[in-house]
Each structure stands twice: as structure tokens, then as C-alpha cells.
Write a protein that binds this DNA or RNA. Structure first.
Lengths: 235, 235
DNA sequence: GACGTAGTATGGTCAGACCACACTTCGAAA
DNA sequence: TTTCGAAGTGTGGTCTGACCATACTACGTC
């Protein structure tokens, strides 16, 4: 019966980098030292260093690329939704989370964001303009379903982003991503899709109008109906 | 100018396993095939297989251990909070998320959970009993600060779990974990900690009482005040 | 039958190699 | 002198093959 959790080699590098991030030694846009250099610095093998960097990669902390130069190697980005999306997605697959919970959470986050007073009114106005463009693009009858879903997701995330909370924004994006396959699979034929998309367009316009006229309560209510209605169609 | 995002080798295994999870071929408690077997099956090296499994590991999908037998190797668990915690934690370090957003999100999730009618009243009653025990343990003056924080977190997560939403529960746990170091560091000395812990104990008891007497609105309000007050002390 | 030991398969780690790639450098051609 | 292309250099990505500690299994001994 072993009690020790067996310390992993990559943890050394991971902790070191996390500390550097916290203390500000490493900031957005910086390059990490090369894998070979990190391996030597910490006295572990390159394989273990790669474990640590792989984790930072899937978590959306760094982006890695081959080649040399200032844009190569592991560069600090910070895309919280990347890691959270991946986690939620896998746990939905593993049945640790079900679709009801995802939908419930989406409604919670989106209605909250809708009712929040925008943290930045100039940005909020820009969002209104950009979402208007998205609505127009979703009117295109030539649009593929995949593309529609992509723009649809962007529409929702953009509206929620006016609340100015990266956690909520990332969560929304992640929740949407985590079940996008499920959604796509549950409405297989185009015949059943056509009437649905018409309703979605109408709902989006109503939601946008409520936002534009500052009817926050109403926007929240419309969003809740919109999300609930859509998922009721996926069965 | 390369346009291809360079397909990663480990993605093959990751997708295969995700599909098996989705289709039910793999379920909770199952063992994954050995790394050497997976490598041969997919025609890639063991190193790349390990990349995939490492990801499943940090995401909380599997637990790996050495040795042989039914409990060895990679076993499917499903601990959503593991992956999300790690992601949030790193992004807080990388300044992609700030503490205000964490606190705001905590309040959103906890007050929502408090106002939700419990999905399972029997479970809710058990939670009330267990949180009562936690409150008693937090009264122990011998308790270390670390231990207090641990029990405190468990208290909050347990209360929220009555809402019956794994996403919300995982998020709460993750938000709490992601800034626990920050909290610990911001109240360094025991002299300033003593008066704080007294208030926390009082607030916890009031919250528990509101839950026990089914005053959901009041419980939500007390939670909000409790969380806001505590973080106002960490500056 | 009980018990201890050898066997076996697992993940964890390491070393070393080769590749494709992207930038850098520098010399040759205009 | 300027331009441009080829060689050079360092990066992560992948593979191979090896060794280790561990934990269970099976077998042989008592």
C-alpha cells in the first residue's frame, strides 16, 4: 500500500513556470526557454519537460510552434476557454456531465451577463454593431450548418462579453463547444433543420433588439427561452 | 507560410478514446489498454500515446498508476473539477483572469445554487447534516489555517451541490482552488487572521441556518455578503 | 492449506537520434 | 550598392529502445 502520490518529474517545471507567471517574470507574448534548456536547468530529461509544456499547451497558456525566431517555440498566450472547453468536452463524453447541466449553466451565465450593466459602454456599443453583422450573415441561405453554428456561438459569446468577466466568457464558449458535436449529430437531416433555423434567426433578432434598447430583463428572458427552445429541438 | 495547423500524433489516440467514451465502450472504472498496446494499435510511438494519456490525466478523465492488476494503468475516473481547477489556476497566474472575476463568478454560482430547489431532498438533508459537522470542526481553535480553508471550501461546495449540477459544482470547486494560494498569501500573519476567522464562523452558521430553515433568498444574500466581505479582507 | 518468492506487466523516466520547419545570415548576382 | 537565394542554425515533433519501481499473479515450498 503506497501512500506517496509519486511526485512527477514534470511538476518541477510546471511549478517553476507558474511561479514565473505569478511574479511577472513571464508575461503575455514572452517565449519560454527551449525544451533542451529547461531540461538542463531543472536536471530532468527533455521528455519530462515536454510533459509540462504539453499541459500548458492544452490549458491554453502557451502556443507552441516549430522553427526558430521570435515567434517560435512556446509563447505565452492566455486563452482560458481552450483548456476549459477541452475539459468540459471530455467530461461530457465520459458522462461525468450531462447535457441538461450544460444547458442549465448556459442559461445561468448568459442571463446573468445580459442583466449586468456593461463594464465598458463603448465596447458594448461595438458589440452591438458586430452582433448586428453576425445576424445579417446568419440570414444567408447559402450558409452551411457548421458555419451557422460557429457564427451563432460567436453571437452569444460576444453579447456575454459585455459583462467584462473572462471566467464567464470562457465558460460560455466552453459550454457551447463542449456539446457542439452533440447538437450537430442530433439534427441530422436538412429538412428538419430548415424550420429550426428560421426560428433561431427570429429569436436572435429579438434578443439583439432587447440589448440595443437596453431592455436587460427582457433580453435575459428571451435568451432563456431561446436556449431552452433550441435544446428541446435536439431530441 | 504554412496554413496547416500541423496535426499532432497524440490527437489520434485522444479522439479514439473520446469516441469510445461517448459511445459507451469505455465507462467509469474501466482500464485503458496499456500504452504499448495503444501505440501499436494506432501505429504511433509510445511517446505520443503518453501525450494523449497525460492530457486525459490532467483533465481528470483518468488516473494512472504503475504496477499490474485491475487497478493499475490508466483507469477512467471523472473528476471535472481537476481539469478546470488546473486551467483556472494557471490562467490566474498568467493574469488572463483576475481575482475580481473569480469572486464575481463565485457569487453568481453560489447564489444561484442556493436559490435552486434541491433536486434531491434526501440528499439535501444529508448535506445539511454534513455541513453542520463541518461547522463544528471549524470551531476548533487548534485548527491550522490550511485545514480551515480546506473545510471552508468543502462547506461551500457541499451546499452548492444540492442544486444537482456537476458543471456548477466543479466550477465552484475550481474557482475556490484557483485562488487559494493567493488568499493564503494575502493574510500572512496570525494576528490579523484571528478576528477574521471569528467572523467567518459566525457567517457560516447564519448561512447554514438559512439553508436549514429553507430561507433560500436569505441564504443567497448571506452568501453574497460573506464572499464579498472575505475578499475585502484580502487586501 | 498458508505463506513467501519469483515472474510479469504496468507506467515513469531517461538518452539519443532524426525530421520538418522558420527564421538568420551571408555571399553571389544584378 | 542593392537584391535575392542558398546554406546555416535552432526550434518543437516524433520515434526508438532502454531501464526502473511498483503491484499484482502464480507457483512452489513448507
Amino acid at each position: 500500500m503506497s501512500v506517496n502520490p509519486a511526485p512527477r518529474a514534470y511538476q518541477v517545471v510546471l511549478t517553476a513556470i507558474e511561479n514565473d507567471l505569478r511574479s511577472g517574470v513571464l508575461t503575455l507574448g514572452d517565449q519560454l526557454p527551449g525544451e533542451r534548456a529547461l531540461a538542463e536547468q531543472h536536471g530532468i530529461s527533455r521528455a519530462s519537460v515536454r510533459d509540462a509544456i504539453r499541459i500548458l499547451d492544452v490549458m491554453g497558456i502557451v502556443r507552441t510552434s516549430t522553427g526558430s525566431g521570435p515567434n517560435s517555440g512556446a509563447v505565452i498566450i492566455s486563452e482560458p476557454s481552450a483548456g476549459i472547453s477541452q475539459a468540459l468536452r471530455l467530461h461530457v463524453a465520459a458522462k461525468g456531465i450531462n447535457v441538461r447541466e450544460i444547458v442549465e449553466s448556459r442559461i445561468l451565465l448568459e442571463t446573468w451577463a445580459a442583466q449586468m450593466h456593461p463594464r465598458d459602454t463603448v465596447y458594448a456599443q461595438q458589440v452591438l454593431d458586430r452582433t448586428a453583422v453576425l445576424i445579417m450573415r446568419m440570414d444567408d441561405p447559402q450558409l452551411s450548418r457548421d458555419e451557422f453554428h460557429r457564427i451563432d456561438a460567436e453571437f452569444h459569446v460576444l453579447l456575454a462579453s459585455t459583462a467584462g468577466n473572462a471566467v464567464v466568457e470562457s465558460m460560455m464558449e466552453s459550454l457551447r463547444n463542449s456539446i457542439s458535436d452533440y447538437v450537430a449529430a442530433s439534427i441530422p437531416d436538412d429538412e428538419s433543420w430548415q424550420p429550426i433555423v428560421r426560428t433561431l434567426r427570429r429569436q436572435h433578432k429579438a434578443i439583439h433588439h432587447a440589448f440595443a434598447t437596453d431592455q436587460r430583463e427582457r433580453a435575459a428572458q428571451l435568451l432563456e427561452e431561446h436556449i431552452n427552445w433550441f435544446y428541446s429541438q435536439t431530441r
